[in-house]
Amino acid sequence: MNRAIIDVAAPLVLIAVLVAGWEAACRIMAIPGYFLPPPSEIARAAVAGAPVLFESAWNTLFMALKALVVASVLACGVALVVALNQTLEKAVQPLAVALQVTPVIAIAPQVVIWAGLDHPERAIVTLAVIVAFFPIFSGALTGLKATDPDLERLFDLYGATRWQRLWRLRIPSSVPFVLEGHKVAGGLAVIGAVVAEFVAGSGGAQGLAWRILESSNRLQTARTFAAVIVLAIMGALLHAALRHAERAILKRLRGR
Protein backbone atom coordinates (compact mmCIF):
# COMPACT_ATOMS: atom_id res chain seq x y z
CA MET A 1 0.00 0.00 0.00
CA ASN A 2 0.99 3.57 -0.63
CA ARG A 3 3.01 5.07 2.25
CA ALA A 4 1.06 8.34 2.15
CA ILE A 5 -2.25 6.51 2.49
CA ILE A 6 -0.94 4.52 5.45
CA ASP A 7 0.29 7.73 7.12
CA VAL A 8 -3.19 9.23 6.88
CA ALA A 9 -5.11 6.06 7.62
CA ALA A 10 -3.13 4.85 10.66
CA PRO A 11 -4.15 7.61 13.11
CA LEU A 12 -7.75 7.50 11.82
CA VAL A 13 -7.94 3.76 12.45
CA LEU A 14 -6.53 4.23 15.95
CA ILE A 15 -9.07 6.94 16.73
CA ALA A 16 -11.89 4.77 15.37
CA VAL A 17 -10.80 1.84 17.53
CA LEU A 18 -10.53 4.01 20.66
CA VAL A 19 -13.92 5.63 20.04
CA ALA A 20 -15.55 2.24 19.44
CA GLY A 21 -13.99 0.89 22.66
CA TRP A 22 -15.19 3.94 24.57
CA GLU A 23 -18.72 3.63 23.20
CA ALA A 24 -18.81 -0.08 24.04
CA ALA A 25 -17.43 0.45 27.56
CA CYS A 26 -20.01 3.15 28.35
CA ARG A 27 -22.89 0.91 27.23
CA ILE A 28 -21.68 -2.33 28.77
CA MET A 29 -20.82 -0.79 32.13
CA ALA A 30 -23.80 1.55 32.01
CA ILE A 31 -21.68 4.54 33.00
CA PRO A 32 -23.85 7.57 33.81
CA GLY A 33 -23.75 10.30 31.14
CA TYR A 34 -22.73 13.11 33.50
CA PHE A 35 -19.67 11.06 34.52
CA LEU A 36 -18.52 9.85 31.10
CA PRO A 37 -20.85 10.23 28.12
CA PRO A 38 -20.41 7.82 25.19
CA PRO A 39 -19.09 9.30 21.93
CA SER A 40 -22.53 9.03 20.33
CA GLU A 41 -23.98 11.31 22.98
CA ILE A 42 -21.11 13.78 22.56
CA ALA A 43 -21.72 13.79 18.82
CA ARG A 44 -25.41 14.52 19.42
CA ALA A 45 -24.51 17.34 21.80
CA ALA A 46 -22.06 18.73 19.26
CA VAL A 47 -24.63 18.69 16.48
CA ALA A 48 -27.35 20.19 18.68
CA GLY A 49 -25.00 22.88 19.99
CA ALA A 50 -23.17 23.47 16.72
CA PRO A 51 -24.25 27.08 16.07
CA VAL A 52 -23.37 28.18 19.62
CA LEU A 53 -20.13 26.20 19.66
CA PHE A 54 -19.01 27.61 16.34
CA GLU A 55 -19.79 31.13 17.37
CA SER A 56 -17.89 30.66 20.63
CA ALA A 57 -14.97 29.04 18.82
CA TRP A 58 -14.90 31.96 16.41
CA ASN A 59 -14.86 34.42 19.35
CA THR A 60 -11.94 32.65 20.99
CA LEU A 61 -10.09 32.28 17.71
CA PHE A 62 -10.68 35.90 16.78
CA MET A 63 -9.26 37.10 20.10
CA ALA A 64 -6.28 34.75 19.76
CA LEU A 65 -5.60 36.04 16.25
CA LYS A 66 -5.90 39.64 17.36
CA ALA A 67 -3.42 38.86 20.12
CA LEU A 68 -1.10 37.16 17.63
CA VAL A 69 -1.05 40.25 15.41
CA VAL A 70 -0.39 42.59 18.34
CA ALA A 71 2.26 40.27 19.79
CA SER A 72 3.90 39.97 16.38
CA VAL A 73 4.20 43.72 15.90
CA LEU A 74 5.39 44.29 19.46
CA ALA A 75 7.83 41.38 19.58
CA CYS A 76 9.41 42.10 16.20
CA GLY A 77 9.67 45.79 17.02
CA VAL A 78 11.28 45.23 20.40
CA ALA A 79 13.61 42.56 18.97
CA LEU A 80 14.72 44.93 16.23
CA VAL A 81 15.49 47.74 18.68
CA VAL A 82 17.18 45.40 21.11
CA ALA A 83 19.27 43.70 18.40
CA LEU A 84 20.83 47.06 17.56
CA ASN A 85 22.10 47.66 21.04
CA GLN A 86 23.90 45.09 23.17
CA THR A 87 23.39 46.96 26.43
CA LEU A 88 19.68 47.17 25.78
CA GLU A 89 19.60 43.48 24.96
CA LYS A 90 21.27 42.62 28.26
CA ALA A 91 18.77 44.86 30.04
CA VAL A 92 15.67 43.44 28.37
CA GLN A 93 16.57 39.74 28.33
CA PRO A 94 15.88 38.95 32.04
CA LEU A 95 12.58 40.82 31.94
CA ALA A 96 11.50 38.89 28.88
CA VAL A 97 12.43 35.61 30.53
CA ALA A 98 10.61 36.57 33.73
CA LEU A 99 7.52 37.34 31.69
CA GLN A 100 7.82 34.01 29.96
CA VAL A 101 8.26 31.82 33.05
CA THR A 102 5.44 33.46 35.02
CA PRO A 103 2.33 31.31 34.50
CA VAL A 104 -0.27 33.39 32.74
CA ILE A 105 -2.94 32.13 35.14
CA ALA A 106 -1.10 33.84 38.02
CA ILE A 107 -1.39 37.31 36.53
CA ALA A 108 -4.75 36.80 34.85
CA PRO A 109 -7.01 37.96 37.73
CA GLN A 110 -5.16 41.25 38.07
CA VAL A 111 -5.16 41.88 34.32
CA VAL A 112 -8.91 41.23 34.30
CA ILE A 113 -9.34 43.92 36.95
CA TRP A 114 -7.13 46.40 35.13
CA ALA A 115 -8.92 45.82 31.86
CA GLY A 116 -12.20 46.60 33.59
CA LEU A 117 -14.72 43.97 34.54
CA ASP A 118 -17.00 45.22 31.75
CA HIS A 119 -14.35 44.54 29.11
CA PRO A 120 -13.26 40.92 29.49
CA GLU A 121 -12.25 40.81 25.84
CA ARG A 122 -9.52 43.37 26.53
CA ALA A 123 -8.11 41.23 29.33
CA ILE A 124 -8.30 38.14 27.14
CA VAL A 125 -6.42 39.73 24.26
CA THR A 126 -3.86 41.25 26.64
CA LEU A 127 -3.13 37.92 28.32
CA ALA A 128 -2.90 36.13 24.98
CA VAL A 129 -0.47 38.83 23.80
CA ILE A 130 1.67 38.26 26.88
CA VAL A 131 2.04 34.54 26.22
CA ALA A 132 2.46 34.93 22.45
CA PHE A 133 5.10 37.64 22.79
CA PHE A 134 8.03 35.57 23.96
CA PRO A 135 8.41 32.95 21.22
CA ILE A 136 8.22 35.62 18.52
CA PHE A 137 10.59 37.93 20.39
CA SER A 138 13.20 35.27 21.02
CA GLY A 139 12.84 33.89 17.49
CA ALA A 140 13.33 37.33 15.97
CA LEU A 141 16.25 38.15 18.24
CA THR A 142 17.96 34.82 17.55
CA GLY A 143 17.37 35.26 13.83
CA LEU A 144 18.72 38.80 13.76
CA LYS A 145 21.91 37.55 15.35
CA ALA A 146 22.18 34.28 13.43
CA THR A 147 23.59 35.72 10.24
CA ASP A 148 26.03 33.66 8.21
CA PRO A 149 29.53 34.86 9.23
CA ASP A 150 30.73 34.42 5.65
CA LEU A 151 28.03 36.78 4.43
CA GLU A 152 29.00 39.19 7.21
CA ARG A 153 32.55 39.15 5.84
CA LEU A 154 31.25 39.81 2.37
CA PHE A 155 29.34 42.84 3.67
CA ASP A 156 32.54 43.98 5.40
CA LEU A 157 34.44 43.61 2.16
CA TYR A 158 32.02 45.81 0.26
CA GLY A 159 31.88 48.40 3.03
CA ALA A 160 28.22 47.95 4.02
CA THR A 161 26.80 50.49 6.45
CA ARG A 162 24.94 49.50 9.64
CA TRP A 163 21.59 50.06 7.97
CA GLN A 164 22.48 48.17 4.84
CA ARG A 165 23.58 45.28 7.02
CA LEU A 166 20.31 45.39 8.94
CA TRP A 167 17.98 45.61 5.96
CA ARG A 168 19.85 43.45 3.50
CA LEU A 169 21.35 40.82 5.75
CA ARG A 170 20.06 40.60 9.30
CA ILE A 171 16.33 41.03 8.69
CA PRO A 172 16.15 38.59 5.76
CA SER A 173 18.26 36.08 7.74
CA SER A 174 15.82 36.28 10.62
CA VAL A 175 12.71 35.37 8.61
CA PRO A 176 12.79 31.58 9.18
CA PHE A 177 13.26 32.12 12.93
CA VAL A 178 10.46 34.68 13.07
CA LEU A 179 8.10 32.30 11.26
CA GLU A 180 8.98 29.48 13.65
CA GLY A 181 8.23 31.86 16.53
CA HIS A 182 4.80 32.65 15.08
CA LYS A 183 3.99 28.97 14.79
CA VAL A 184 4.67 28.43 18.48
CA ALA A 185 3.01 31.71 19.42
CA GLY A 186 -0.21 30.78 17.60
CA GLY A 187 -0.80 27.78 19.83
CA LEU A 188 0.12 29.75 22.94
CA ALA A 189 -2.22 32.60 22.00
CA VAL A 190 -5.17 30.18 21.99
CA ILE A 191 -4.10 28.78 25.37
CA GLY A 192 -3.69 32.32 26.71
CA ALA A 193 -7.12 33.32 25.45
CA VAL A 194 -8.79 30.25 26.97
CA VAL A 195 -7.08 30.69 30.32
CA ALA A 196 -8.12 34.33 30.39
CA GLU A 197 -11.70 33.40 29.52
CA PHE A 198 -11.78 31.00 32.44
CA VAL A 199 -10.58 33.70 34.81
CA ALA A 200 -12.79 36.42 33.36
CA GLY A 201 -15.69 34.05 33.99
CA SER A 202 -19.23 35.10 33.28
CA GLY A 203 -18.36 38.71 32.53
CA GLY A 204 -19.81 38.42 29.05
CA ALA A 205 -16.90 36.75 27.26
CA GLN A 206 -18.59 34.36 24.90
CA GLY A 207 -15.68 32.10 24.02
CA LEU A 208 -15.26 28.35 24.12
CA ALA A 209 -13.87 28.39 27.64
CA TRP A 210 -17.11 29.93 28.82
CA ARG A 211 -19.10 27.16 27.08
CA ILE A 212 -16.94 24.60 28.88
CA LEU A 213 -17.46 26.27 32.26
CA GLU A 214 -21.17 26.72 31.72
CA SER A 215 -21.90 23.15 30.62
CA SER A 216 -19.67 21.61 33.24
CA ASN A 217 -21.40 23.64 35.98
CA ARG A 218 -24.69 22.23 34.72
CA LEU A 219 -23.30 18.70 34.54
CA GLN A 220 -23.93 18.70 30.76
CA THR A 221 -20.84 16.58 30.34
CA ALA A 222 -21.45 15.64 26.71
CA ARG A 223 -21.62 19.32 25.84
CA THR A 224 -18.40 19.94 27.77
CA PHE A 225 -16.67 17.22 25.79
CA ALA A 226 -18.04 18.64 22.55
CA ALA A 227 -16.64 22.09 23.42
CA VAL A 228 -13.25 20.64 24.34
CA ILE A 229 -13.12 18.74 21.07
CA VAL A 230 -14.01 21.86 19.09
CA LEU A 231 -11.24 23.68 20.98
CA ALA A 232 -8.72 20.97 20.14
CA ILE A 233 -9.73 20.95 16.47
CA MET A 234 -9.50 24.73 16.36
CA GLY A 235 -5.99 24.68 17.84
CA ALA A 236 -4.91 22.00 15.39
CA LEU A 237 -6.32 23.94 12.44
CA LEU A 238 -4.61 27.13 13.52
CA HIS A 239 -1.32 25.28 13.89
CA ALA A 240 -1.75 23.67 10.47
CA ALA A 241 -2.57 27.04 8.91
CA LEU A 242 0.49 28.68 10.44
CA ARG A 243 2.69 25.79 9.36
CA HIS A 244 1.32 26.01 5.88
CA ALA A 245 1.94 29.77 5.79
CA GLU A 246 5.48 29.23 7.08
CA ARG A 247 6.26 26.71 4.34
CA ALA A 248 4.71 28.84 1.63
CA ILE A 249 6.66 31.93 2.69
CA LEU A 250 9.95 30.05 2.98
CA LYS A 251 9.37 28.41 -0.37
CA ARG A 252 8.74 31.77 -1.97
CA LEU A 253 11.77 33.23 -0.27
CA ARG A 254 14.18 30.44 -1.22
CA GLY A 255 12.58 29.52 -4.51
CA ARG A 256 12.01 25.93 -3.42
Binding site: L151, F155, Y158, G159, R168, L169, P172, V175, L253, R254
Partner: peptide
Protein backbone atom coordinates in the same frame (compact mmCIF):
# COMPACT_ATOMS: atom_id res chain seq x y z
CA UNK B 1 28.18 32.55 0.11
CA UNK B 2 25.06 33.68 -1.68
CA UNK B 3 22.08 35.24 0.05
CA UNK B 4 19.53 32.38 -0.09
CA UNK B 5 16.59 34.78 -0.25
CA UNK B 6 17.90 36.73 -3.24
CA UNK B 7 17.93 35.84 -6.96
CA UNK B 8 21.18 35.22 -8.80
CA UNK B 9 20.90 38.68 -10.28
CA UNK B 10 20.25 40.36 -6.93
CA UNK B 11 23.19 38.48 -5.44
CA UNK B 12 25.48 39.58 -8.24
CA UNK B 13 24.25 43.18 -7.89
CA UNK B 14 24.98 43.33 -4.15
CA UNK B 15 28.44 44.97 -4.26
CA UNK B 16 27.16 47.75 -6.51
CA UNK B 17 24.00 48.32 -4.48
CA UNK B 18 26.01 48.48 -1.25
CA UNK B 19 28.14 51.10 -2.99
Amino acid sequence: NLMPWASAQANAALPLELD
